[in-house]
Every structure is written in C-alpha cells, then in structure tokens.
Design a protein around this nucleic acid. Structure first.
Length: 552
RNA sequence: GGCGGCGUAGCUCAGCUGGUCAGAGCGGGGAUCUCAUAAGUCCCAGGUCGGAGGUUCGAGUCCUCCCGCCGCCA
C-alpha cells in the first residue's frame, strides 16, 4: 500500500483553514510536571490560539496523560496505593498545569480511559486484519525499569563491590537481563519507503535539523521488526491484547493511539478532524513520533500528521535538568513568583526549537521586567495617566493634526512598523518562530516609546493650541498597543486580554483581520472610553535583598 | 570508527540565496528627561564571526583539513 496514493498537498495550515488539530505529547505520570512539560503545552497552546486569532473554524487541541506500564505499577506500590488511584492523582496535576497556565485544550485523554481502550483495540484489530501483526518468539536483552529491549551496543558492563559483573543499560544505568519470550511483532521495515517519502515533505518534521535526523535513521538499512506487546505476567497495568489475555499492548503503541482517541476514532467523526495539523513533541520522543507513529498510521490506512514540531530541551543554569541534581524546575512554584503569563513569555521568547534553551532565574527576571513591565506596561501607563489623558479616552483624531504629526520620520517609521507587523508575525508564527514574532513586537513597542519621547506630549499638554496634536500622539500610541495586544494573545493571553480590555477593544474585534485594519485608515473610528480600573499589566519583580542601584 | 547537526559581543539570538569584513535585545558604563509600572530616550564600551588553508575583485556566508560540543548508528 503506497503513501503516494493519498493527499499530501503542501499547505500553509496557518491560514484560516476550516479545521485545525494540535496535540501535545501525553505526559507520563511517573513524575509531576516540570518546565519541559509546560514548554510542550505552551507551544501547542500558542499555535492553537494563533489559529483562533486567524479566524473561526473547527479546532481541536488534545493533551493528556500516559498511565500504563510497569513503572506506574512500581510508583503506585511505592506510594502505597493502587495504579488507578495513583494515576488519577498525578493526572490531576497535569490538568492543573493546564488550568494555571491557560492551556486551552479541548480534549484531555488518559490512557486508562475506557474510550481509549476501545480505540486501541480497534486500531490493533485493523493492523491485525491488514496482516501487520504477527506472533513471534523474541529474544534479547531487556531492561525491566525502562521496559525496553536493547541492542548489545546499548549495554554496558558494571562491576559490583564484590567483583561480580552485571549488564546494565548504557543510557539509564538500570540492570538488564536476557529474555526469550513470545511477543506480537510489527514489521517496521515494510513501511520504510512510505515513511521516508512522508519525511521528505517539506513540513513533515520541523525544524529541519530533526527531519534530517529521522531521514538518517530510515536511510541506514532495513528497519527491524519491533515488539508491540509484553507478557501480561510482567506488565499487567495496561491494555490487554484483543483475544489474548497473556499479552499486554506495548505502552508506546498504546500511548500513540491517544491522538486517534482524541479525534474520535471509535466513532464516525474521525475524518472531520484527521490528520493532526501539528503534533508538538520533545526531542526525546522523536523516534517514536517520527518513525513508529507514521508507520502504524500508514499500515492502518490513515494519514500521518501534516506536521510534527519537535522542540529541544531546557537546561537549568547550564546543566541538564534531573532529579538527581535536584534542579528540576517546578512550574507551579515559579508561576507564583513570575506569574503564569510571565513564565509563558519567557519560554516562548527565549526558547528556540532547534537548540536547548538555558533556564536561569536571573534571565527570567531580567526579561520579564525589561519587556513586560517596562517596555510594554510602562507604555500603557504613559498613555493612560491622568496627567496627559484627563478624560481617559482613546481619542479620535483630526486629519490635519494627524498629517502634521505623520510628516515626521519617526512617525513614518512607527506607522510602517505597525502596518507591517501583522504579516511579519504571521510569517514567524507559521514557521513556529515565536521568539522572532515577539522580538518584532517588542521592537515596535520601542519605536512607540521613541515616538512618544520625540513628540513630548507632556509639553504639548501645556499649550492649548496643541491639544489636537496631543490627541494624535495618544491615539497612535494606543493604536500601536492595540495591534501589539492582538498579536501577543497566543504568547501571553491574560496580559493581552487585560491590555485590550483597558483600551476597550470589543472581544469580537481581536482577530488578525482587526490587527490589519489601522485606525488612521478607518474612517469609522469612534472615540473610546478607557476602562476605569487601574490596569497593571505586569508587576515588576523585586526579590528580597535585591536593591536596584538608584540613579542620580 | 561512520554519518548528521551545531560553534557570531558576558548571555540569548539575527545575519537564507557571497557585496557597507558584522547587527538586535538583555546585561555593563555614561548622559539626558520627568508624562509614566524608579519608567523613557540618546551615546559608549564589548566581536581573531572555533582554528588553518583555499576559491574569488570581495567570504560570517562557498570548498578542504583540523579542534570542540551534541545526536544517531556501529
């Protein structure tokens, strides 16, 4: 069965398509959420919100938790509870992550849900009926902790205190043992050409670095058959293989089907939303999503995803994040200091998909204070203060006064920046370059501050003959804030909402089209009242004992 | 060992297709302003673009070799 037979037309899904389906990985419940989990969710949420800024449609955003496997059995036992209760508890932490950080998912899938089991069974039977599952005796080195078969190159020898040698996983350090057993197998090699073809399409995997890694993997020689079940005697917390109670479905097959579960695989609605538009993943699970997953899908006669966005990891103060180093960054704890939008901003502003980011609290504080409190928040305050804006309005402007102000080079630059900003952001968001989009927005806000400084409205205020020019300065600056606010909604939804509320932008006027219609071109513009509340977009972060040097 | 990715100012990045032999933000220093979230604006310092060689009138950008980091495979 050839992949060429189905529709892989290159398309820019960032346009206002009728449908959009974005996914995060489902998070393994062996541990609480950390900054890396948040990063995946925030990226997916930004993509989802951007789609909404572009326009209405049938959208779906799935996330969830991966709850099966022997590690969960062990973790539950360690916590003196059963796997089901244990999973419910930790899964609720991931739901809380989404709630705290405004992750606007539509579907939360738990692999222990009955609906998911139905989908896994259905998928299994489809693969089986297509002759893609066969039973075979399998022998190899097996790591119980990691629940994986390993090749000999992945092993190391370890000498114990008594001089005895044991074989361990080279990667995790956990012990391995030689196992011979009967498992169900899947012929990865039979889909290799199709997967290679899919990988070569332009947007299949982004950034290109990860696309090349995958192409390298599938171009090296035939892919092996892989085991897709485990004996139930060893792994009983999972989904039973249909019609064979002695085997449990391999956790990766189980987990990957969650995306189908979210899309309505067990009932007829799947094709209303399938295939996924973007699947967001971390680089540690690249092989499963970039080779296994499309192989399974193609074998089952389903389209692979239109795009996989693979992001890199976060180091912490230059070191890999790990429990043993005790440097795992807890997003809940950090959000209490930096706010949820603040943490979102930092991750999307500082993170680039192609290389590891470095998390540092010093950097977080500096970026948030400089850009959210100062550049953005202070600019709003300059416009809304009663000294310059006693009537608390977003004023209408007179054409002659506008022309007078617009003749300045600084004003021309600002108007050009604001006019081109929506399309520039469109380009960057479409290519998943959030940091470039944010960079342009911040640059535009700097230009607005320069414009404000150039025209010195606090001096215009003193001359009654210059009141109309003062209105123009306030108007242009508030309009810049309005456009920037619309474009920042995917990044900092709450701060953007507060900003747009303050300048009285109607909720239904916060779309990409609204960002393109500029007030000085809008003959129907009506003077707007600013909201009465004293809006503080972002409170500057000051740590105890950290006293800023006062300037003279 | 083979293959792939990366290496640009203290930090994070831009600089795609060879052409002011280099920019931005943050951080640092100075000046100035007072509308404003003690904010804004301006100026300055910081660069062997990992190293060496080559192609070219001209290379951060192309080629070769070497060094370092990361990943995959053996």
């Amino acid at each position: 069965m050839s992949i060429r037979s189905f529709n892989l037309i290159k398309r820019n899904y960032s346009q206002s398509n009728s449908k959009f389906f974005v996914t995060t990985p489902i998070y393994y419940v062996n541990a609480s959420p950390h900054i890396g989990h948040l990063y995946s969710s925030v990226i997916a949420d930004a993509l989802y919100r951007w789609q909404q800024v572009l326009g209405a449609g049938k959208f779906k955003f799935s996330t969830g938790t991966d709850e099966h496997g022997s590690k969960i059995q062990q973790a539950a036992h360690k916590n003196n509870t059963n796997p089901s209760d244990y999973c419910t508890r930790v899964s609720s932490d991931y739901k809380r992550l989404s709630e705290v950080f405004s992750i606007s998912y539509t579907d939360f899938v738990r692999t222990s849900d009955e609906e998911h089991k139905k989908c896994v069974h259905k998928f299994w039977n489809v693969l089986k009926n297509k002759g893609k599952i066969f039973s075979s005796k399998y022998a190899g080195w097996y790591c119980i902790s990691d629940e994986s078969f390993l090749t000999e190159s992945q092993l190391k020898e370890k000498v114990g205190p008594d001089g005895r040698k044991t074989i361990i996983s080279g990667e995790s350090g956990h012990p391995v043992e030689w196992i011979e057993e009967v498992n169900y197998m899947f012929p990865l090699g039979s889909l290799q050409d199709d997967v290679k073809y899919w990988l070569r399409s332009e947007n299949a995997v982004r950034p290109a670095k990860f696309q090349k890694i995958l192409l390298d993997m599938v171009s090296k020689g035939p892919l092996p058959d892989i085991s897709i079940s485990r004996p139930a005697s060893r792994v009983h917390w999972g989904i039973q293989v249909p019609d064979d109670e002695t085997q449990t479905v391999y956790v990766w097959l189980d987990a990957l089907v969650n995306y189908l579960t979210a899309a309505g695989y067990s009932h007829a609605s799947l094709h209303q939303i399938w295939p996924p538009s973007v699947q967001v993943i971390g680089k540690d699970i690249l092989k499963f999503h970039g080779i296994y997953w499309p192989s399974f899908l193609i074998a089952a006669g389903l389209d692979p995803p239109l795009s996989i966005l693979c992001h890199s990891h976060w180091t912490v103060d230059g070191e890999k994040m790990s429990k043993s180093k005790n440097n795992v960054v807890c997003p809940f704890q950090r959000s209490e200091i930096y706010s949820s939008d603040g943490l979102r901003y930092f991750l999307l502003r500082e993170g680039v998909a192609h290389s590891d980011g470095n998390y540092s609290d010093t950097k977080v504080i500096r970026i948030l204070n400089s850009e959210l409190a100062d550049t953005l928040g202070n600019l709003l305050s300059r416009c809304c203060g009663t000294a310059l804006n006693p009537h608390q309005t977003f004023p209408k402007i007179e054409a002659s006064a506008f022309e007078s102000v617009a003749s300045s080079d600084v004003t021309k630059k600002l108007i050009e920046d604001v006019a081109t900003l929506p399309d520039v952001c469109m380009g960057h968001y479409s290519n998943f370059n959030f940091y470039k989009a944010v960079d342009r927005v911040i640059a535009t806000l700097h230009q607005a501050n320069l414009f404000f400084e150039t025209f010195k409205p606090w001096e215009l205020k003193k001359e009654s003959a210059k009141t109309r020019e003062l209105d123009v300065v306030l108007h242009l600056t508030l309009e810049t804030l309005r456009v920037c606010g619309i474009l920042l909604q995917p990044i900092i939804p709450n701060i953007a909402s507060n900003l747009l509320n303050k300048i009285n932008v109607a909720r239904e006027r916060r779309t990409f089209s609204d960002a393109k219609i500029l007030s000085w071109d809008d003959t129907n513009f009506v003077r707007k009242e600013l909201a009465k509340d004293k809006t503080l977009l972002f409170k500057r972060i000051v740590l105890e004992g950290d006293r800023k040097k006062t300037k003279q």
